[in-house]
């Protein structure tokens, strides 16, 4: 347990020293919010949630790539594979929560007549799913640039595609729009339920991808045998 937390602590230290990443994390969602503030009610909320998700998954992508060089050595030093990716996730989740608080307050103060509880749920689920997406992408694609392109595509599609259509459910952040509709347009409960189920399924799938990708990459090679 302490090992996982040590990984988490060092990941957090690394992240907070990367000024560029931090700046992006702070400013990007704000830019999204302000861009849509003049629009019809609630668009800014949807976009700020999406912005938070994108920023957090990008941060996870960068952390994952930077950590690659160190992970084999950490394995040799005695870390188990799950301690390595869980530690990074804990760090990113912590950062995500810290990041969401000011934005939740912003919405609380700036927007009226929305279901604040549901918005908190969107942000919480977004914090959970985004690092998983970013880490999964960095585990599957070796280079930052390709990973960035994938994330851009995902977010872009999320913005363009009509959430009512079935195809859009394949996107990992669909739940933000669905629960968003529940929160802003005061639609009935099934919207919330559908959103929650989608988030749960997405979380499980992405966690599986991360676990499998890490395990394969950091597996103990069959030709090597440790004799005590």
């Amino acid at each position: 347990m302490t090992r996982t937390f040590t990984v988490a602590e060092m990941s957090l230290r690394e992240l907070t020293r990367r000024r560029g990443v931090l700046l992006m994390l702070l400013i990007l969602p704000l830019a999204f919010y302000l861009a849509r503030r003049g629009d019809h009610l609630g668009q800014s909320i949807r976009f700020v949630c999406l912005g938070l998700c994108w920023a957090l998954s990008t941060a996870a992508l960068f952390t994952g790539s930077a950590a690659r060089a160190l992970e084999p050595r950490l394995r040799l030093s005695g870390y188990r594979t799950h301690e390595l990716f869980l530690g990074r996730l804990v760090a990113l989740w912590t950062l995500g929560v810290a990041l969401s608080l000011p934005y939740f307050l912003l919405i609380r103060l700036d927007q009226q007549d929305v279901r604040y509880g549901a918005i908190a749920v969107i942000m919480l689920l977004g914090v959970v799913v985004s690092p998983l997406l970013g880490l999964a992408v960095s585990a599957l694609l070796p280079r930052d640039l390709e990973g960035m392109l994938v994330l851009l595509t995902v977010v872009g599609l999320q913005m363009i595609m009509d959430p009512a259509g079935t195809a859009s459910r394949a996107l990992p952040f669909w739940f933000t729009r669905e629960i968003g509709t529940y929160a802003i347009d005061h639609t009935p409960a099934p919207y919330l339920t559908r959103g929650l189920i989608h988030a749960l399924v997405t979380t499980t799938l992405l966690m599986l991808v991360v676990a499998v990708a890490f395990t394969i990459r950091l597996r103990q090679r069959p030709h090597l045998r440790f004799v005590s």
């Binding site: 060092m10 230290r13 690394e14 990367r18 950590a67 060089a69």
Partner: peptide, 11 residues
């Protein structure tokens, strides 16, 4: 390689 850019030596 084998080191983390943004961590200090003691870390």
């Amino acid at each position: 390689g084998g080191t983390a850019d943004f961590l200090r030596a003691d870390e």
